[in-house]
């Protein structure tokens, strides 16, 4: 099914995108409201929560350029060394920019 990108068509597309996205924001909590949270389920949830971040970052590192890799490595080192997120993030971005400046 195709929708023409007329003004009305675009409004429909944006509305549907908003509904689908809202459904993802609500769906997880909604489904969990029917699940009894046993220690095992809670353990699943906790392990899953910390894995979400890793599942986003690792493919990002593998598909990224040298700048992306350098940025993530820098952030990791500074974060593990200082445990302060903002300097770690800022340094990561700076290194990405510098590496790309050098390569590009």
């Amino acid at each position: 099914m195709s929708i023409e990108t007329t003004p009305a068509g675009i409004l429909v597309i944006i509305a549907l995108m908003a509904v689908v996205t809202l459904a993802t924001r609500y769906g997880g909590a909604f489904v969990m409201s029917f699940v009894r949270i046993s220690p095992r389920i809670e353990s699943f949830i906790n392990a899953m929560a910390s894995s979400v971040l890793i599942a986003i970052i690792v493919p990002m590192a593998f598909s990224g350029d040298a700048g992306a890799l350098a940025a993530l490595a820098t952030t990791a080192i500074i974060m593990l060394g200082t445990r302060r997120p903002l300097p770690a993030i800022a340094a990561g971005i700076l290194v990405a920019a510098l590496v790309r400046l050098g390569v590009g």
């Binding site: 970052i57 593990l80 993030i89 971005i93």
Partner: peptide
Amino acid sequence: PQALGLDMVLGCFLLAMALGG
């Protein structure tokens, strides 16, 4: 924005959060 490293903001932020836990 990529030349300024801005595409890495979210990645670096999430990594910092993961390692801080």
